[in-house]
Simulated scan of single mutants.
Amino acid sequence: MSRSVLLEQPGRYRLVKGEVPTPGPGEVLVRVAAAGICGSDRELYEGGRPEEYCTFPIVPGHEWSGTIEEVGPGVDPALVGRPTVGEGFVSCQVCERCRAGEGNLCLAGYDEIGFTRPGAFADHLIVPARLLHPLQAGTDLRAAVLLEPAAVAAAAVLQAAPLPGERVGVVGAGTLGLLTIQLLAASSPAELVVSDPRAGREPVARAGGATRYFHPDELGELDLDVVVETAGARDSAAASTRLLRRGGRLVLTGIPGVVPEMLSPSTIVERQLTVFSVFGAPSAAWAHAVRAFTAGLLDLGPLVTHEFALEEYADAVALLGQGGDDVGKIILKP
């Protein structure tokens, strides 16, 4: 038997039991080791996620790690027993964006594990084999669950293209921000400035490579070469532009849940800022994150602060909503 959390509609779910699913052609069956909960999972539970980005009923869970238990027709049987993580966007592979390597921007429409097809808040998960990123034997799967947000952080850092010796900054010290700090630190910056209102996040940020840590109200103008915005707060994008030197580079990853302050076109043009954005992560960013993790450049385990059983799904979502300095990555463990 296999258990899963079935979210029938916002705020209403039940734990269901059924037969272990069988992988079809080109698919694998993964035994889930851990599944992370992020802000988008909370939006799904509370009914705040846009209709075009979700389907009900749904088994949530797009951040996961596990072990391949069975492969379907056409999949290499040598994969059985391998620890793995996997991408969430299920792209068409034939449109212009997919052919350009941007499956996260697939023109066939949005389709993501945990939002439009069954996700990882379950004992087992069916995944297209082409989305897998197999890991080395003995990998810490509790830590590896963070490779999905790490891939998003990697996408942002690849866009920013920091050079050794540049002055860089991160706005927001949530999970995504802390992962971005570690990846930016690997580029040997002259300075790595972090802005977040939560003083309790400073030790983790500094452990990841931050050299200065400020409350947003204390920052002022810093003339940084690169800023990666991860907070998704109301005014964080506009505030990020004020930290950049003329000709600096800004990467936006956060999606504000409220009407944001507008970025000033005059500011962008007059200061000749380059603005990038990130929506999820393409395969190249996933590969980059997995390589960094395997090489020991990403220390993911300490970012996991709370573990819950599948039966405690609602409690886990509630804790995420409460936040707090001591609440990092929350995971469900089957």
Rank of each mutant, 00 (worst) to 15 (best):
M1S: 14
S4Q: 13
S4Y: 08
V5P: 06
V5N: 07
L7I: 10
E8L: 13
E8T: 15
Q9Y: 04
Q9G: 05
P10F: 01
P10L: 02
G11W: 04
G11H: 06
V16E: 12
V16C: 06
G18L: 06
E19R: 15
E19T: 08
E19H: 12
T22V: 15
P23W: 00
P23L: 01
P23N: 04
G26Q: 06
G26E: 07
E27Y: 08
E27C: 08
V28S: 00
L29G: 03
V30E: 01
R31Q: 14
R31D: 13
R31N: 12
V32Q: 08
A34T: 12
A34W: 09
A35M: 08
A35T: 07
G36M: 08
S40P: 06
D41Y: 02
R42W: 11
R42H: 13
E43G: 09
E43Y: 12
E43N: 14
E43D: 15
E43M: 14
E43W: 11
E43H: 15
L44S: 02
L44T: 05
Y45C: 04
Y45P: 00
E46R: 15
E46K: 14
E46C: 14
G47K: 05
G48M: 12
E52Q: 14
Y53T: 01
C54H: 03
C54S: 10
T55K: 07
T55S: 13
F56L: 14
P57E: 09
V59K: 02
V59A: 02
V59T: 15
P60G: 08
P60K: 01
H62I: 00
H62D: 01
H62Y: 00
E63L: 06
T67F: 08
I68V: 15
E69F: 05
E70N: 12
P73A: 15
V75C: 06
D76A: 13
D76L: 10
D76W: 11
D76M: 11
